[in-house]
Design a protein around this nucleic acid. Structure first.
Lengths: 90, 90, 90, 90
DNA sequence: AACGCATAAGTAAGAC
DNA sequence: GTCTTACTTATGCGTT
C-alpha cells in the first residue's frame, strides 16, 4: 500500500497544487513576454536581435566550456578535411 | 545608411539592454524552479507527477480549444467574404 | 578512457555520417518544397490556403486525439498499478 | 464572383489535395525520423551529437556569412567590454 | 550516467 | 514592409 499511487485524496489538495502551478506558469509567461518586449525595443533602436541573443548566450556560457566546445568542433572539422581558419588545407 | 545594422552605439545602451534581459531571464528561471518545487512537493504527498502534468495540460488545452474554435469560425467567415469584425465591408 | 568523448576516429566514418544526414536533409527539403507546390497549385484552383491549412491541421488533431486519449488511459492505469501491457505485475 | 473564394467545388478535388499534402507530410516525418536514427547511431559509435549538429550547420552556412556574423558578435562583445579572445582587454 | 521527453529558442513563412 | 504565427531545432529535466 505504501508504494501505491495516491488515488484517494482531498480534492482541495489537488486543486491547490494545480492552481499554484498554473499561477506560476502564468507569471513565467508574462516574463517571457517582457523579454520579447525588450528585444523588440532594442530592435527599434537599431540593434540586431539575432546577434543580441548570441551575445547573451555567450555571456551565460562558462568561458572554459565555450573553448572546449570550439576546440571539439575544430577536431571534427579537421577530420572532415575542412579548414578551421582561412589559411586552410592548401 | 538607413538599412545598415547599428555597429556604433552607446555602450551603455547595449549594456542596459543585455542586463535587462539577463535580469528577466533570471526571474523566469526562478519561477521555473518554483514550479519544479511544487511538483516535487506534490510527489512527496503521493501525487503522480506525470498525471499532474497531464491534468494541467488538459486544462490548458480546454482553455485554448474555445479560442481555436473561434479563430476557426473567423477564418471560415472571412473565406466566405463575410465581415469578422464590426467595421467590415463598407 | 571510457567516459571520454571520441576525438580520434576514422575520418571516413565521420564523413559518412555527415553525408548521410546531409542527404536526408536534402530529401526533407525537397518534400517541403513539394508541399508548397501543392498549396500553390490548390490556390491556383481557387482554394483558400489558410483554410486548407486549418482543415489539414484539424484532421491531424483528430488523429492525435485518439492517441492522446489512449496514452492518457495508459497513464492512469499505470498510476493505479495496473498493467499497461501483457507482461505485467508478476 | 471572380475574386470570390471557392465554396463550391468537387469534393474529390479537395480531398485529393488534402491527401497529397498529408502523404507528403508523412514522408517528411519519416525522413526526420531517419535523421534522428542516424544521430542515434552516431552517438552509439561515440560521436558527440551536439558537435555533429554544429558541424553540419557550419557546413551549410556560407563561409562569408559565418565570418560576418562572428565579426558582428565581436563588435557587440567589445562594446560590452568583454574579451573576444584570450589576450583581451588590457 | 544515459535516455527520452518536454519545454524553449530560433528560424522561416504568411497575413495584413 | 512589418508583424505575427507556425515549424524546426536545440537545450535542459526528469526518469530509468
Amino acid at each position: 500500500m505504501a508504494d501505491q499511487v495516491k488515488t484517494s485524496f482531498a480534492h482541495g489538495q489537488l486543486l491547490t497544487i494545480v492552481e499554484r502551478i498554473e499561477r506560476l506558469e502564468e507569471e513565467k509567461k508574462t516574463i517571457a513576454g517582457d523579454i520579447k518586449e525588450v528585444y523588440a525595443e532594442a530592435k527599434g533602436n537599431g540593434f540586431d536581435i539575432k546577434i543580441l541573443r548570441k551575445v547573451i548566450s555567450l555571456r551565460k556560457k562558462d568561458a572554459n566550456e565555450r573553448q572546449e566546445e570550439e576546440s571539439m568542433i575544430d577536431v571534427y572539422l579537421a577530420a572532415l578535411g575542412m579548414a578551421v581558419t582561412a589559411e586552410a588545407a592548401e
